[in-house]
Nucleic acid binder design. Structure first.
Lengths: 195, 195
DNA sequence: GTCTATATTACGATAGAC
DNA sequence: GTCTATCGTAATATAGAC
């Protein structure tokens, strides 16, 4: 944090406003007029900071993807038994998803209409495959059930984790990040019936 | 099926085309021009069958919601131990989601920008609560773990089930509906580690 | 039922003053 | 850096012929 003095926008601060509107109205449902009202500046002022709507989208999904890929580079994701690495990655995914909530939310809603969206979808797929590899290794080591196909199980686990963006609100009372991560890990590995 | 003779559209057949386009491009990202090209008729011809884009959305989400609520009226969802009713509902949700895939897909992507969307969101919430009540009953009867809050667990289970619309394609080789339902039931109740 | 116009509005983006 | 004004385009929807 270099300055905290004035309220003039940078691409970064404008992004945080825009992402909020995108997530409320949907990217396609958001006009530059909507953004300008939310930011409190005129449409043309927005173009002074960014090249247009799609640059805001590109910046947002990049930030989300960077956060997710960084997990795979962490020590606990690279060393140890596969099932332990998998549990670590699942927990960290929940944490990153919550700490970068608006950005990940936008990433997960991307449909592929524009070039930036297709690029985001491809990187998401790459991340999914990395986690699927981990699950496969855990199955090979006999630490997770073998009666559900790896690819299918990965998709369902991602579905559970990713769905958090649909309801988690940091400002609300209720489960905090730690509690959500604990619940996800329990359900993913032991299910509703428990150990 | 009364007739199968000609290729003239009814609101119903037009809907099946429109829903496909909505799911590919997103509802907001779909123009009447897109719909007219996909249907092979002109824009104005579409207005002969439906009042506009939003009526198509309304019809689609209604169909999805009807399918889901019908589950709760079935015998196995109303009689027996709560945990067994819950398992039945989870399995049937997967089946309905797959049999009404495009309609449920659209329902799950609704954001609340229009009146029809807000109505859909409210009915979805009602359905969620009905399933949460079932989970609560199962917990009270001691059949599911008590160390994860009911509301949180419900949301995560719904997240797993609903995520199926993001990747399931009936035409593709790979897991069929039965296999997906089996996998979901196993993961939801016993998790990755298994029984 | 379907078409070719076209009315009307909203959108993304730019020009140029301050 | 922000504004007002505006351009060109694409959107939803309608009119009216066939």
């Amino acid at each position: 944090m270099t300055t905290a003095k004035r309220d003039t926008y940078t691409p970064e601060t404008l992004l945080s406003v825009a992402v909020g509107v995108f997530n409320e109205r949907g990217y396609d449902g958001t006009s530059m007029e909507h953004l300008s009202r939310a930011a409190g500046i005129s449409k043309s002022s927005i173009y002074h900071h960014v090249s247009g709507k799609e640059e805001l989208l590109r910046r947002a999904v990049s930030r989300a993807l960077d956060g997710l890929f960084a997990i795979l580079a962490e020590e606990h994701a690279r060393e140890g038994r596969a099932v332990d690495r998998l549990e670590y990655v699942v927990r960290r995914m929940v944490e990153v998803l919550i700490s970068e909530l608006p950005y990940v939310t936008l990433l997960l809603r991307v449909r592929g209409n524009t070039e930036a969206e297709r690029w985001a979808l491809e990187r998401r797929r790459e991340f999914d495959h990395r986690v699927a590899d981990l699950l496969r290794a855990a199955a090979d080591e006999g630490d997770v059930r073998a009666d559900v196909e790896v690819r299918l199980a990965t998709r369902l686990v991602f579905g559970m984790i990713n769905s958090i963006v649909e309801w988690y609100r940091p400002e609300a009372r209720g489960a905090n990040g730690r509690e959500v991560a604990d619940a996800v890990v329990r359900l993913v590995f032991s299910g509703l019936r428990g150990d």
